[in-house]
């Protein structure tokens, strides 16, 4: 048995595996397949102030070793999430992380100020990859100044540990990472999906109704590992790595690159029981490699 306890930036977990936002709903469906208390944490679907309809279908397309999605933040709004969804998760011994998103900087603040009343939240994860409607739809996460404004506003409105979740759709992710660190983020999470597109050659139109979508899955793993590596060199706050993890070995790679914990996303679609399998696989891998404490692996490749 390896010591897998992970205690980073005020977020305590029994192991470093978190199911990624948008890939595990609010836990209900997965709880039919395995005990959610096995998870280090669960990051629930991106939540906005008001209910959101999301993008029209088709929203999903398969790609070589991955997939594109343009779900577009369909969610019932913060009030319903706090009263109808989160209470279900209180029966499990796992860190519940609320992923939040907004159309404007103010919207993030208005959601954040509601969170300290929730009984079972372990952290808030800010999705800064969504479009800033007031700034012509450009993502909050591509401008270090705007990213920092969102982080410091959320930080001022809640006592929860704040995770800034970064988009890979930038020239230099370390610039955004440093801005979020300076603005008070406790933890960084990366990467979100990679802006992509598929064209249906029969209809000669983009395949997804929204045109563009976010690429995820094994296809983006090397890109994600590179960004975690670079970010680990640029900041001193802990990192949660993700992007294409599908096995315990993939997770080890992220830890070696400098992540202290990791999230699994699209693999939950390929294999709904991936989470418990990766946790036990990680334990086995560590045993086989003489690793007593998972922390020994963090950043060991640098």
């Amino acid at each position: 048995m390896t010591n897998m306890t992970t205690n980073i930036g005020g977020l305590k977990m029994k192991n470093p595996l978190i199911t990624a936002s948008g890939t595990c709903g609010y836990g209900r469906e997965m709880s039919e397949l395995f005990d959610l208390s096995l998870l280090g944490g669960i990051a629930v679907k991106g939540t906005t102030l008001e209910p959101r309809l999301g993008n029209p279908p088709p929203r999903i397309a398969e790609t070589p070793s991955g997939m594109l999605n343009s779900v577009g933040l369909q969610n019932p709004g913060i009030e319903a999430v706090l009263t109808k969804e989160l209470p279900f998760l209180s029966q499990f011994d796992t860190a519940v992380i609320l992923n939040i998103a907004g159309h404007s900087i103010e919207e993030y603040g208005l959601i954040a100020e509601r969170l300290d009343s929730a009984a079972n939240l372990a952290a808030v994860e800010i999705n800064i990859s969504c479009p800033n409607v007031k700034a012509g739809g450009m993502s909050f996460g591509v401008d270090p100044k705007v990213a920092a404004q969102v982080v410091s506003l959320v930080k001022s409105k809640t006592k929860l540990p704040v995770i800034a979740k970064l988009t890979p759709n930038v020239t230099d992710i370390t610039e955004i990472a440093k801005a979020c660190e300076a603005a008070g983020a406790d933890i960084l999470a990366l990467i979100n999906t990679v802006l992509s597109m598929i064209i249906d050659i029969e209809t000669r139109r983009p395949l997804l109704a929204n045109g563009f979508g976010g690429l995820s899955g094994p296809a983006i793993k090397p890109l994600a590992v590179r960004m975690v590596w670079q970010t680990a060199q640029a900041v001193s706050i802990p990192i949660i790595g993700m992007g294409g993890i599908s096995t315990a070995e993939d997770a080890v790679e992220f830890l070696l690159a400098g992540a202290s914990a990791f999230q699994i996303g699209s693999i939950n679609f390929h294999n709904p029981c991936a989470a418990p399998q990766i946790i036990s696989g990680l334990d086995r891998w560590c045993d086989d490699h003489g690793v007593k404490n998972i922390a020994e692996l963090i950043g060991a490749a640098h």
Partner: peptide, 15 residues
């Protein structure tokens, strides 16, 4: 509809 997960977690298959 095109499906990501088939069990309700991805919200990709909506009509």
């Amino acid at each position: 509809e095109r499906m990501g997960c088939g069990y309700g977690v991805c919200v990709g298959c909506v009509c």
